[in-house]
C-alpha cells in the first residue's frame, strides 16, 4: 500500500470491525451467524414456497395480496427488509417488474440478497425508462397489449411479484410447483415455465 493512496476496502473493513468490536457494538460471532444465514439459508426458495402456496390456496393468495408481510410470516419467513412487503400479481395482461432506482432495496426474507444485475446502474436507470426493451434484452418478450408496471422501491416498501401460474400445471400439487418458481420470475424479469 502506498502512503496517502486510497485505502484498500478489505483493510478498512477490518479496521472498522476491530474498532466496533472494541467498543462492544458488534459481537463478531453474532455477525458470523447473520452472514452465514444470508449465505446459506435465506434465498429464493422461500419466495417460491410463498408463490406455490398462493397458486394452490385461493384464501392464502388473497391474504398475500392484502398484506404480504403477514402472509409471508405465516410460512415462517420474516426479518430484515421484510417489514413491508407488498405483493403484486402478474397476469396475462398485466406485468409488474421490480427495481430500486436509488440503491438496492429487495425483499431479503423471500429472495435472499439481490444479484449483481439488480444492483447495476444500467438496470436501475433503464428499467424505469424503457422496461419493455430491457425485459426483451433479458429474454422476456411481452406482447404489446400487456401493460407493464415498474415497481420502484422508493420508500420502505419491498416488492414481490406473484408470477402467473403457467398453463399446463393445473394438475401439479404445491410441492411440485415450488421448484418451477424462479428468482427472476419473482422480480418480474421472467415468467414461470411449465416443466
Amino acid at each position: 500500500m502506498t502512503t496517502g493512496g486510497p485505502l484498500p476496502a478489505a483493510l478498512r473493513t477490518e479496521a472498522l470491525e476491530q474498532l466496533l468490536t472494541e467498543r462492544g457494538l458488534i459481537d463478531p460471532k453474532v455477525m458470523d451467524g447473520i452472514i452465514t444465514n444470508y449465505e446459506t439459508n435465506v434465498g429464493p426458495l422461500n419466495g417460491a414456497k410463498v408463490v406455490a402456496r398462493a397458486w394452490t390456496d385461493p384464501q392464502y393468495r388473497r391474504r398475500l395480496l392484502e398484506d404480504g408481510t403477514a402472509a409471508i410470516k405465516e410460512l415462517g419467513f420474516s426479518g430484515s427488509q421484510g417489514e413491508h412487503i407488498v405483493v403484486v400479481e402478474n397476469t396475462a395482461t398485466t406485468h409488474n417488474v421490480v427495481v430500486c432506482t436509488l440503491c438496492s432495496c429487495y425483499p431479503w426474507p423471500v429472495l435472499g440478497l439481490p444479484p449483481s444485475w439488480y444492483k447495476d446502474p444500467a438496470y436501475r436507470a433503464r428499467m424505469v425508462k424503457e422496461p419493455r426493451t430491457v425485459l426483451s434484452e433479458m429474454g422476456l418478450e411481452l406482447a404489446d397489449d400487456v401493460r407493464i408496471t415498474v415497481r420502484d422501491s422508493t420508500s420502505e416498501v419491498r416488492w414481490l411479484v406473484l408470477p402467473e401460474r403457467p398453463a399446463g400445471t393445473e394438475h401439479l400439487p404445491e410441492e411440485q410447483l415450488v421448484p418451477l418458481v424462479t428468482r427472476d420470475a419473482m422480480v418480474g424479469v421472467a415468467k414461470v415455465k411449465a416443466p
Partner: peptide, 30 residues
Amino acid sequence: TPLEGQSATTAPLDAEGPAAPPRSNGELVF
C-alpha cells in the same frame, strides 16, 4: 441477539435445485 428475527427463515432447504444455496442467485452472494 439479532438472529432472533431471522430464525424463522432458517427452514430446511433442498441441497440441490434452482434455489439451492449458496448460489441460489446463480452467483456467489459475496
